[in-house]
């Protein structure tokens, strides 16, 4: 019988903290900025619209500049945070698992063992196609919390990873 029961040295286990995670494609930053700009434009338009409608109905004068100021400060802060957070979006594929880390205010690093993956999906939005990027979605049987979606991977690489994972899943079954 080929059975061993050696003591596990926790120090010698593969360490996730020593791993060099790969950053996602830089072009994804453009997508983030474009998305954010669209959002901010919407917000500012909302402020103007709000003022217009309120003043028409009721005879109150709202301080437009004050409101715009608040919104712009919010936008700038939001943009700075998302630019900084972009640097935190990193991923790695190991022999047995997929790791994805993100977030600056709340940093999280999630690992899904490949043997627990149910299926992999690679999807591209219109904008992502334009920049040659795609999103890799990894589904597990767990609650929504354990599903990964790695955004902003170069299209070729996403396809490769998808192939590797699919092969491994099918190999295991």
């Amino acid at each position: 019988m080929n059975f061993t029961n050696l003591q596990i040295q926790t120090e010698s286990l593969p360490k996730v903290e020593d791993l060099v995670l790969k950053p996602i494609s830089n072009s994804y930053l453009k997508i983030i900025i474009l998305n954010k700009l669209a959002l901010y434009a919407g917000l500012i338009a909302l402020v103007f619209g709000f003022k217009y409608f309120i003043e028409k109905k009721e005879d109150v004068e709202l301080n437009l500049w004050y409101m715009i100021f608040v919104v712009i400060v919010f936008c700038i802060l939001n943009l700075i945070v998302s630019l900084l957070a972009f640097k935190k979006r990193k991923y790695a594929i190991r022999e047995h698992d997929v790791i994805y880390s993100k977030g600056i205010i709340i940093h999280s690093m999630i690992t899904v063992p490949i043997s627990r993956i149910q299926h992999v999906e690679e999807s591209r939005s219109w904008l992502a196609r334009h920049f040659g990027l795609s999103t890799l979605k990894i589904f597990t049987a767990g609650e929504t919390g354990s599903d990964l979606s790695i955004k902003g991977l170069p299209h070729v690489e996403a396809k490769q990873i998808k192939e590797i994972i699919s092969d491994k899943i099918n190999g295991n079954n």
Binding site: I104, H107, S108, I110, T140
Partner: peptide
């Protein structure tokens, strides 16, 4: 039976 593990840390916890 673990499906995935997540490490979470806020800026203040860092």
């Amino acid at each position: 039976k673990i499906q995935g593990i997540k490490l979470k840390q806020t800026l203040f916890q860092k």
